[in-house]
Simulated scan of single mutants.
Amino acid sequence: MNALPYVFLLVTLLANQSCGTLVVDYCVADFNYPSGPTGFPCKNPAKLTADDFVTSKMGIAGNTSNPFNAAVYLAIDTTFPAFNGLGISMGRLDLDVGGVIPAHTHRSSEVILVIEGTILAGFVDTNDTAFYKTLKKGDIMIFPPTLMHFQVNVGNTPALAFVSLNSANPGFQTITFSFTANNLPTEVVQKISLIDSAQIKKLKRMFGGTN
Rank of each mutant, 00 (worst) to 15 (best):
A130Q: 14
F131S: 11
F131W: 11
Y132I: 14
K133C: 12
T134R: 15
L135N: 07
L135T: 05
K136M: 12
K136A: 14
K136H: 15
K137T: 13
K137R: 15
G138V: 10
G138W: 10
D139E: 04
I140A: 13
I140N: 08
M141N: 09
M141Y: 09
I142R: 01
F143R: 02
P144G: 08
P144H: 06
T146F: 09
T146L: 11
L147R: 06
M148T: 13
M148P: 04
F150H: 05
F150I: 10
Q151H: 12
Q151C: 07
V152T: 07
N153L: 07
N153H: 08
N153F: 07
G155R: 14
T157H: 14
T157W: 06
P158K: 13
L160Y: 12
F162G: 01
F162I: 00
V163Y: 11
V163P: 07
S164F: 11
L165K: 06
L165D: 00
L165R: 05
A168W: 14
A168H: 15
A168E: 11
P170R: 08
P170Q: 06
G171K: 15
F172A: 14
F172T: 11
F172L: 13
F172I: 12
Q173I: 06
T174R: 07
I175L: 14
F177G: 00
S178Y: 03
F179D: 00
T180S: 05
T180Y: 01
T180M: 01
N182F: 01
N183A: 12
N183W: 08
P185M: 04
E187I: 05
V188K: 10
V188F: 09
Q190T: 10
Q190W: 05
Q190M: 07
K191D: 00
I192W: 03
S193Q: 03
S193T: 15
S193D: 00
S193I: 03
L194M: 09
L194C: 12
L194E: 03
I195S: 05
I195V: 15
I195L: 13
D196P: 06
D196V: 04
S197C: 04
A198Y: 11
A198S: 14
Q199N: 13
I200W: 01
I200Q: 01
I200C: 02
K202C: 05
L203K: 03
L203R: 02
L203Q: 06
L203E: 02
K204L: 06
R205P: 00
R205H: 10
M206K: 12
